[in-house]
Each structure stands twice: as structure tokens, then as C-alpha cells.
Nucleic acid binder design. Sequence first.
DNA 1: TATTGTTATACTCTATAACTATA
DNA 2: TATAGTTATAGAGTATAACAATA
Lengths: 161, 161
Amino acid sequence: MATKQECSRLAGQLSTLGAVKKAFDRTLPSDSPPASITVLAILKQHGEMRLSRLTELLGVDPSVASRHVAHLAANGWTSRRPDPQDKRSRLLCIEPRGEQVLREASLRCTDALADSLRSWSDHDVRLLTELLARLDESLECRRTHTANRTTRPPADQTTTR
Amino acid sequence: MATKQECSRLAGQLSTLGAVKKAFDRTLPSDSPPASITVLAILKQHGEMRLSRLTELLGVDPSVASRHVAHLAANGWTSRRPDPQDKRSRLLCIEPRGEQVLREASLRCTDALADSLRSWSDHDVRLLTELLARLDESLECRRTHTANRTTRPPADQTTTR
DNA sequence: TATTGTTATACTCTATAACTATA
DNA sequence: TATAGTTATAGAGTATAACAATA
């Protein structure tokens, strides 16, 4: 089990994630908003799904996911067919045009990354990829925006836990 | 040197960073906006600096950094003293009250992380921390928002590069 | 009655452009 | 003339709350 000390260091390092993510968002074409690309990537990877599942994977409020999907569907990048099991839901699916947009975005990101990581060994890149995947998995339970809300007044946190 | 294939995998994994970051932002007290905590963490780690340096480290436009700093100073979390070397600049510094706020936020994040990473070994946590630090360093040149802009029309990207 | 998804509204973060004070 | 920083404005992303349709 990881010590508090190591977790604290990791937490500090994670605070730079914002800047890293921004750097990648900037490599995307200006007509492909980062949020749209994220949704397309999820649909490509996991296949057809309902909005509720997408909401979980994005880690956002359902209203946000709904908005993104409406935009994607309006562009013809995704489709929404009725869910035969539940008439309240629709099944979301990436369309060929969406796959094309996703492919272009992925190419740009990969090129930018390969350029920045010239000094990295293949082994280290693979290691980081695997650790990030594992981190993502470990954090999945914290990803729904309604879980673990901090609503209490933040007084006297010197004795947290 | 890392292959395109491994970089492509890493790029795909990095797309989940948004959800990871959101999960951590949710652990913060509601009166401590994530952006403010990020600025405090940078000032704590790197010490006194000018706005231009903070702008680089945040990876945002100067106007954004200026705004954050104004908010922090209004709360008494940071101070701004005249730069003796250049009367156009001020030197930014974290104040005791800001350190206290940062400490509380860090505690929460660390606790949340330690809770999620119960199954991780100390070694793997340290490894991930080091690789993330190295990634952050490798990407530093891409972090200024004016560098590497993609302004050309994204036509025919099948032949990128 | 509970759940799935949508819409209206407001808040945070961000970038662009125009500006000032100083170098 | 160029640079450091600020402010006004606009746009993207997000959450809350109220709602409609279905389970």
C-alpha cells in the first residue's frame, strides 16, 4: 500500500495536469473543440452507449454530456437511434464523419507528442501509458460528479481524517 | 527514441486526463477555486516571481494569470510588491493565509488519492510521479499559449507532416 | 414514484483586443 | 519602438434547478 508521503507527492504533480492538457488541446484544429474530440474518442473506444454511460466516462453532469452530444449530432459526427430496451434513452454512436475528425485530431496530437518526446525511450512511454490507464481505473469511482461532494464548511482541516 | 505507435497510445490515454483532473478539483473546498489553488501551489514551489513567469508555468494568456492574481491578492492569499529591477512589474509571493488554504487543499487531495490508491505499491506511485514530472518538463516548450498555434485550415490532414 | 434525458440560467476559466505605464 | 501588465468583452465548458417522457 502506498504511503501518504508518496501520495502527497503525486497529488502535487497532478496539479500540473491542467497545463499538460491545455498544451494538447492547443494542437487540435480550431473547428474541433476539445470536448467534442473527447466524446468522439470515448464513443470510438467503447462503442455504442447511452447518455448515462457517457456521462460517467466523461465525469461531468448529464446536462453537459447532453449538450455535447446535441452539438456532435448536429454536425453529423454522431448518430442517436432509439434504445429498443428503454424509450427514454437513445443509443449514441460515432459516424464515419466523426471518425474522420477524430483521426485527424489524433494524428496531430500524436505528432506533437512524438516531437516533444524525442528523448524518451519506447519503454518509458509505454510505462507511463500503463500507469495512467491504471490511475484512470483507480479513480473511476470518484469520477461521477455527484460522488464525494465537499459541502461541509472547510473549518479546522488540520485534523482531516 | 519512442515510436509513433507508443506515442499514439499515450496520446489516447492522455485524453482521459480531463476526467482525472475534474475528479481532483471536486475534492477541493468550494471556496477555493481550482485555478487559485494551482497558482498558490506554483508560488509555494517556485517562490517569488513575476507575472510573466507565472503565465508560462500556468500555460495560459497573461490576462488570465493577471485575473487570478488579482483575486488572490484581494483575498490576502498573495502579495504583490514592486519589482526593484523593473517598475512595470510586481513580484508575486504567497502569504501565510494562502499557505494555509493551500495546505488544506493539499490534505484533501492527498487523502482522496491515498483512498483511491490503496491497492498501489509505493514503488508504482513514485514511478508515476516521476514520469509525470518528466512529461511536464518535456512539454514545457509547448505550454505557452502563443506557441504552436494551429491556424491553417485543417484540410487533407491524411498527409500531416 | 423513480429514472432518463433536455433545457434555461449562471458561474468559472479562458482568449482576443485595446489600453497604460515603463523599458 | 517594444515589453509587462491590466481591463473589457466574448466564448467554451460546466453545474444547478426545473421540466417532460417513460419505467
